[in-house]
Design a protein around this nucleic acid. Structure first.
Lengths: 134, 134
DNA sequence: ATGCAGTCTATAGCTGCTATAGGGTCAAGC
DNA sequence: GCTTGACCCTATAGCAGCTATAGACTGCAT
């Protein structure tokens, strides 16, 4: 299986696969006589793992943490659980942050609509501390 | 006012201010005899604007869009409104995406807890499409 | 033989900073 | 007058996580 096919089956760009190889996230595959990368099912499995983990928002260093755990199926669950829970906490924090942001922005927009054209609340709120009180 | 003071009053790092200047987000200030940057209230106002907008999650190119609008107070509100609403929509989308993510991850974790040590659902779910059905 | 899709390496670019190296400036204290 | 220390200067490289480019080769069909 050459790189393009692997890319298609995992919805990954070719360059990304080569990038993962370069940073050691994917093992170097064997090469054909024409120096083309030749992948097997083990590469597919590993890349799928990486992509799924990335899709769940894990950062590359966390994926790196999870990878060896995926190898020995025994006793790994608790270790995985720790990483996953930490990640969940970060996601919750991010959601909370975005909600605050959303609220603030929504406030600004609704004031903008109500206000006269000449005094835009958004612009005002974005001004310096001493000019626009907030 | 030199750069350190401007940095402190706007909670910005000195390097960030110089960076903003380099990319043309802040106008070049005059220099003292010793080649130190010398800022005035206009710089303070503009940097405050940039930082507030960034704090609301606007990207730098959006801040660039908003900046000229902040200059002419008349007729700008609707233009600002458009940018702000687009930003709000993106935030909503991001929150929705994170919620889906959160749910998926939570599912995995709870199954992991319930399951036996040897079959970790998280690892399983991260496997390739043909090995772990999902 | 030629064309074209696919692959190769190496390198630079993206966003939004942050950090480093290696120097200059300025006010205070001895 | 000289040093110390805090501040400032420029230029450059680095971070994540890719993405894009240049310039060359391979492999298959016509």
């Amino acid at each position: 299986m050459q790189i393009g096919e692997l890319a298609r089956t995992t919805s990954t760009k070719v360059e990304t696969i080569r990038f993962y190889e370069k940073i050691g996230l994917l093992p170097k595959p064997s090469r054909t006589s024409g120096n083309y990368r030749d992948y097997g099912s083990d590469h597919l499995a590993r890349l799928s793992f990486v992509r799924r983990a990335r899709g769940l928002g894990f950062r590359l260093d966390q994926v790196r943490e999870l990878l060896p755990l995926s190898d020995d199926q025994n006793r790994s669950c608790s270790a995985v659980d720790i990483v996953a829970r930490a990640h969940l906490a970060r996601i919750d924090q991010k959601i909370a942050d975005l909600r605050v942001l959303r609220y603030e922005l929504d406030e600004l927009i609704s004031h903008c609509r109500k206000g006269a054209i000449s005094d835009c609340r958004i612009i005002e709120a974005l001004g310096p501390p001493n000019e626009a009180g907030y």
